[in-house]
C-alpha cells in the first residue's frame, strides 16, 4: 500500500464517521482546526487497528504524529518500510 492509499482510507473514515456533511479534509488539513478532538484521534487509532490489523506501538502515540492525515499515513507507510 502507498502513502496515498492510507491517506484516502483515513479521509474516507473521517468523512463517514467523524465529520459533518460537506466538510472537506485534505491530507494537509490540520485536524485540530476542523474540530477533531482527543476522542476522535482515539477513534482514528482504533480504525487503523481494525483496518490494517496493526496495533500502533506506544512510542508512536504522540500528538505530533496526529497533526494531519498525511502525518498519520506516514506512520503507516514507514511501518511497511521498516
Amino acid at each position: 500500500m502507498t502513502q496515498e492509499t492510507y491517506e484516502s482510507d483515513i479521509i474516507t473514515f473521517l468523512t463517514n464517521n467523524i465529520l459533518a456533511e460537506g466538510v472537506v479534509v485534505t491530507p494537509q488539513t490540520v485536524l485540530r482546526e476542523t474540530g477533531i478532538d482527543s476522542y476522535s484521534i482515539v477513534e482514528i487509532i482504533l480504525f487503523i487497528e481494525r483496518q490494517y490489523n496493526y496495533v500502533m506501538p506506544d512510542h508512536l502515540l504522540k500528538s505530533e504524529n496526529f497533526v494531519t492525515v498525511a502525518t498519520i499515513a506516514a506512520l503507516l507507510n514507514n511501518r511497511q518500510i521498516h
Partner: peptide, 8 residues
Amino acid sequence: YNGRKRGV
C-alpha cells in the same frame, strides 16, 4: 462523549 459531528 461529545456526539456532535466535527468540522461545523
